[in-house]
Design a protein around this nucleic acid. Structure first.
Lengths: 319, 319
DNA sequence: CTCCGTGATAGCCATCGGTTATGGACGTCC
DNA sequence: GGACGTCCATAACCGATGGCTATCACGGAG
């Protein structure tokens, strides 16, 4: 029924050498092993493949019939191996970059350029992940690296490089009372204390610590936030804001995602700045992954000195 | 490097079922065995072939690349098996009929017809064998059945069916003195006593008892024959006769092989008749071989009743 | 929350593929 | 003609492999 490729290799070798001894040498096995294998093949096929007359080894009619097919089968398998090698190389060259929303800030092109300068054959592909997954696909392996907001759940499983640190703003529905207060403020900002009682839009519960972070639980002094709804994408958030469902904190650089149709965003005093990081699974040692983290670290160090130190909880240098 | 066909079968089964459990059932192996095999294949190829996410099994890019090649390799091997099966069938249908000189006497067409009536797919092929081999190829396996002259060396190794019994004649060179004596004889014959002193052409020594038989050693009462030369074919014999090298005994029915260019052949009184048999190796039980012997036995029984009993030394019924 | 289905793992046993040592048949060399 | 060399087959042995059963881990459904 089935056959082992080795048997076909052995058979063709003997057919070509017309000598068990020479074929065995060529195959780097002992002559008895070769004899046994050929006998097994003959037994399996139910036909002699070689005439072992005294002195000479010759192919039988059956052997002659088999030879081209044996070669074809071996060739088919070689082709399979090459296809696998090609696909594996392509796979290795692929780097899936997960993100909740586009990180913007010129990060993607900059990192892409740095990655390709060191790994010209790399093929980075972008992948949008629901906000329900704060690891942007790292956790379930659907991303190789990801743009994530800190704090990250299970942060010890990941290696993080902070690439941006910016203040948290608040997005307000059209006609929201706080708009006036911000307008009257010399900085155009509002105090978090004035905001804390508002109904908030929140990330899904699966987001873990990140949900609390964007609800600014740390700044509430133990008072629970009022959660007005759950949002899992920029579109849902914008929709909820337009409907006046609640307010929502976001990174300053992300305000443009929701500011339209009357929605506004203003700075908030009294909140620590948010931090955006590039992350990968800690145990993922693939060259492309490491290179991407290295690129992020270097980019950071140059373009925004001081802001771009490694995230302490994430620990460890990427390169 | 090599791969076992089984692994490819397993792989394609899992790829088709997208479930290890179902594939294992289809393949009639346990699920752990299947898992292990797939892991081995993946290890050998250095790449994952399936995503085993919780709940679902999916092909990876590498697996997708492999699948068509795996199928092609399996198909190539199936084709090989069919080629072998075809060649084996052809081999089984082939019956190599060895003979020293054409047996003539209408035997070949008659036996061929009988063989084909019972085995329409049989493909009898004729093979001329040197006179040096009195078994006409049976001994070294180059013939499956053969027309042989008795007595046969190692006769217990063969199964024989006598198909013709006819007097021994003598072939004389042109101008040989005995021609006149034969012409003067009422039967056109000569007595062996008048012949015994002549130089004789003989078969090669390898022919064993058959060489003595055609030298009529049995009729010489212990006196050694004079051997004038060795002949191993009808052509050599004719040549030697034309040259006047010696005389030679032959079966009456074979005289036409040498009677030309002045060579003559006449009956010899005082010699037992020669016997032509169809023979096969005793341990050869293949249907076609047995059928040929059976055909010979039946032919014998019908067309020449009395003459065609089984050769005593050969023993055993063919059918 | 327990049961079911799925895949992975562990431990065991038979078979297989490899080795070395040896045997028998044949040709060659002195 | 006898010692030797060559070539394929066989025997005995050993580690790896392929199969099994039993069990675990985990997620979904009732």
């Amino acid at each position: 029924m089935d056959v082992h490729g080795r048997e076909l290799r052995y058979f063709t070798a003997v057919a070509e050498e017309l000598s068990f001894t020479r074929a065995a040498e060529r195959l780097f096995v002992s002559q008895p092993a070769l004899s046994k294998q050929i006998r097994m093949l003959e037994k399996q096929l139910g036909a002699e493949l070689f005439h072992r007359d005294r002195r000479a080894v010759r192919l039988t009619a059956v052997g002659k019939a088999l030879l081209p097919h044996a070669r074809a089968t071996l060739a088919a398998w070689r082709a399979a191996e090459e296809a696998v090698a090609g696909a594996t190389a392509a796979e290795r060259a692929r780097l899936v970059i997960g993100m909740s929303t586009s990180p913007g800030r010129g990060l993607l092109p900059a990192l892409r350029a740095r990655l390709l300068s060191g790994h010209p054959r790399a093929r980075p592909v972008l992948r949008q992940v629901s906000w329900a997954d704060p690891t942007a696909g790292l956790a379930d392996g659907s991303s190789d690296v990801a743009f994530v907001w800190l704090p990250l759940p299970d942060v010890e499983r990941y290696r993080c490089v902070v690439v941006a640190e910016e203040p948290r703003w608040v997005a307000l529905p059209p006609e929201h009372p706080l708009r006036g207060r911000a307008a009257a403020d010399p900085e155009g900002a509002v105090d978090f204390a004035d905001l804390a009682g508002e109904p908030f839009l929140a990330l899904p519960p699966e987001a873990g610590p990140l949900r609390e972070y964007w609800l600014a639980v740390d700044a509430r002094g133990g008072r629970a936030p009022r959660v007005a709804g759950v949002v899992a994408s920029a579109e849902e958030t914008h929709e909820a804001l337009v409907n006046g469902q609640g307010v929502v904190l976001l990174a300053a650089g992300n305000s443009s995602l929701v500011v339209r149709d009357g929605v506004t965003a203003v700075p908030v005093r009294g909140l620590s700045p948010s931090r955006l990081a590039v992350a990968a699974r800690r145990d993922d040692g693939r060259p492309l992954v490491r290179a991407y983290l290295t690129a992020a670290a270097e980019l950071d160090r140059r373009s925004a000195p001081g802001a771009g130190r490694r995230e302490p909880g994430g620990g460890g240098q990427a390169a």
